[in-house]
């Protein structure tokens, strides 16, 4: 299916926003302005955007510790996200979650997750809600190659299949679980695992937005139409370390520069749409400028925003607790 101009512009803007956001978080973290752990999604944008472009607010996703891209793709407010990462009261979670726990349930974003493999059972629940209440919604778990080896993930494949849930498991394989290569840590294949549970499985080039988008459409339609769960193995690379500060001594010498030069998902997208004359370079440059302004503003506002106060320490542990 051909994407419309608007869809293409939207996809580009989303990917560019994620990239700019992550590059800025990298800078600010390096400068010592951001507390805690951050795990950046730069290089992986085509996956989050390729899937989430098919989703609505009634659809749910669960993310990973590397969750900023999924949040942006699912519609979370970029300014509130940046404020959250800076630990500010105006942050999307009031400064209580931080990078690893950004969530916006109104947008169907069930949270980045500090626990590897934490998300798949949760999206089985979201899918069960959709099925039970007849909302027509679907639920997607984004799981890293590391998370693909967790029992929770494999149990969720089984549960989603035996309950025939509108659930999709997206294995985002960036080649490394922390410092350990997925080529070593994953026995068998992701698609073979899907087959083992009787689910359709797909392998897709995660640098190619259009390939991801096409597979995503197929599995999401299947789930929406009662066809049950699917698994998609997205293969790509991350540009930054497992976490910020990771010297990436485990990676090949020129691995990242070569990937950035040859396989960058945003460059590939840009080249393809301009070569096919679907979009003008000037339109994309304009988006780049707008996104840069958005991130500048979000960062400045996040820095200027107040920290939460002592009064916020004990709120929101429970809905009510006497």
């Amino acid at each position: 299916m051909q994407l419309s101009r608007d869809q293409l512009l939207h996809a580009y803007r989303q990917m560019r926003t994620i990239r700019a956001f992550e590059d800025r978080v990298h800078e600010e973290f390096s400068a010592g302005n951001i507390p805690g752990f951050v795990h950046l999604y730069a290089g992986e944008e085509a996956s989050a955007v390729g899937f989430c472009m098919h989703l609505e607010d009634r659809d749910h996703i669960a993310s990973t510790h590397r969750g900023h891209g999924h949040c942006i793709a699912k519609g979370c407010d970029v300014g509130a996200m940046m404020a959250e990462i800076f630990g500010k009261k105006e942050g999307l979670c009031g400064g209580k979650g931080g990078s690893m726990h950004i969530a916006d349930l109104e947008k169907g974003m069930m949270g980045a997750n500090g626990i590897v493999g934490g998300g798949p059972p949760l999206i089985c629940g979201a899918a069960l809600t959709a099925k039970t209440l007849g909302t027509g919604g679907v639920a997607i778990a984004f799981v890293g190659d590391g998370g693909s080896n967790q029992g929770t993930t494999l149990e969720s494949y089984n549960l989603a299949k035996v309950w025939n849930l509108p659930a999709i498991f997206v294995i985002e394989d960036n080649g490394y679980a922390e410092s350990t290569a997925s080529s070593w840590s994953v026995a068998g294949s992701q698609v073979g695992r899907a087959a083992g549970f009787g689910m359709p499985g797909y392998e897709v080039d995660g640098h190619d937005f259009f390939a991801v988008h096409a597979v995503a459409r197929e599995v999401i339609e299947r789930a929406r139409n009662g066809g049950g769960p699917s698994l998609v193995h997205v293969k790509f690379a991350r540009y930054y370390g497992h976490f910020e500060g990771d010297a990436m001594t485990y990676r090949g010498k020129d691995e990242v520069p070569r990937l950035m030069a040859e396989r960058d998902c945003i460059d590939l997208f840009r080249r393809r749409v301009t070569e096919a004359a679907l979009l003008e370079p000037s339109e994309l440059d304009a988006i780049d400028r707008e996104v840069a302004e958005l991130i500048d503003r979000a960062t400045a506002e996040a820095k200027a925003a107040p920290m939460p106060s002592e009064a916020d320490l004990l709120t929101d542990v429970y809905v009510s607790y006497h």
Binding site: A62, M110, P121, I123, C124, G125, L159
Partner: peptide, 12 residues
Amino acid sequence: AFIGAAVGAAAT
């Protein structure tokens, strides 16, 4: 899987 599914269903 199913305790997690219950949690996810509750949140949604």
